[in-house]
Amino acid sequence: MRPFLFLSARPEVEAVGPEYESVRRAMGVDASRLEHLRLDVETLGDLRLDEYAGVVVGGSPYNVTTPDAHKHPVQRRVEADLARLAEAALDVDHPLVLTCYGIGVLTRVLGGTVGTLHGEAASAVEITLTAECVADPLMGVLPERFDALVGHKEATERLPADAVLLASSAGCPVQVYRVGRRIYATQFHPEVSTHDFVARAQVYRHHGYFPAGELRAVSERLAAASVTEPQRMLRRFVELADT
């Protein structure tokens, strides 16, 4: 069986390993089937998509809405690599999931709009599936409403023309969409448990996702949340990519 590829873009080294493990556990694969490339460290290069059953892109503190003149050269390279990946996957409808930061890159590639109107502080929010989601092979296995973990400063404000909206929340109208048959973008984090997210909040407590002085209160709220469904997305992604 072909391996999967996980692409991370977190410069904070203490967050890299835990994110990989969260994705691997949620996918239900062992380390031998999930290769890992840190885009903040090395370039994507000449990626052969056909060598992988599917690709998952993780989150990042980077924001696509940051003016280009203020973006670090590494961020500009990461975004160029992710845009190139998205375009290649779109050409052949290759299984791909882009999470959080990745949805912003894909939205721009497709001609949609990303802005800061619908940012959400680090928290658990209720996700509502759309009517179009019922027949979707990946998202259709989830209940109509469930809680997911979010923490982002930007979001899709205008859905790309060819995208199918699959899920929303009260504060963020575009939480998940699909392009083609097998390319998905999600604003919330499908990989993390509440324990994982509490640990991530500690790493990013000074990044503006919540007031740093409220770390303890935020951590307690996150730990008390019931988040059971989102990880099923990545396990289902593996099932579909392997068929």
Results as ranks from 00 to 15, higher is better:
residue 170 A to H: 14
residue 152 H to C: 04
residue 151 G to C: 06
residue 191 E to P: 04
residue 168 S to V: 00
residue 180 G to C: 07
residue 179 V to G: 04
residue 136 D to G: 06
residue 180 G to S: 08
residue 160 P to D: 09
residue 136 D to M: 03
residue 181 R to N: 15
residue 182 R to S: 15
residue 178 R to D: 09
residue 185 A to S: 15
residue 181 R to F: 00
residue 183 I to K: 11
residue 159 L to A: 12
residue 158 R to L: 14
residue 191 E to I: 07
residue 146 F to A: 08
residue 179 V to F: 05
residue 133 C to T: 15
residue 189 H to W: 10
residue 165 L to N: 10
residue 183 I to N: 04
residue 181 R to A: 14
residue 170 A to G: 02
residue 167 A to Q: 04
residue 172 C to I: 03
residue 143 P to C: 08
residue 140 G to M: 09
residue 153 K to V: 00
residue 150 V to L: 09
residue 136 D to H: 04
residue 135 A to G: 10
residue 140 G to V: 01
residue 135 A to P: 02
residue 156 T to A: 15
residue 139 M to H: 05
residue 189 H to G: 08
residue 152 H to W: 07
residue 142 L to R: 00
residue 154 E to D: 15
residue 164 V to F: 02
residue 155 A to S: 15
residue 185 A to V: 01
residue 159 L to R: 11
residue 138 L to P: 07
residue 139 M to P: 00
residue 136 D to V: 01
residue 152 H to F: 13
residue 158 R to Q: 13
residue 147 D to L: 09
residue 153 K to E: 00
residue 133 C to F: 02
residue 144 E to H: 13
residue 166 L to R: 02
residue 168 S to T: 15
residue 184 Y to K: 07
residue 175 Q to G: 08
residue 165 L to A: 13
residue 166 L to M: 11
residue 144 E to W: 09
residue 143 P to L: 03
residue 156 T to I: 05
residue 134 V to P: 01
residue 141 V to I: 14
residue 137 P to E: 13
residue 150 V to W: 06
residue 179 V to P: 02
residue 190 P to F: 10
residue 135 A to C: 02
residue 168 S to P: 03
residue 190 P to G: 12
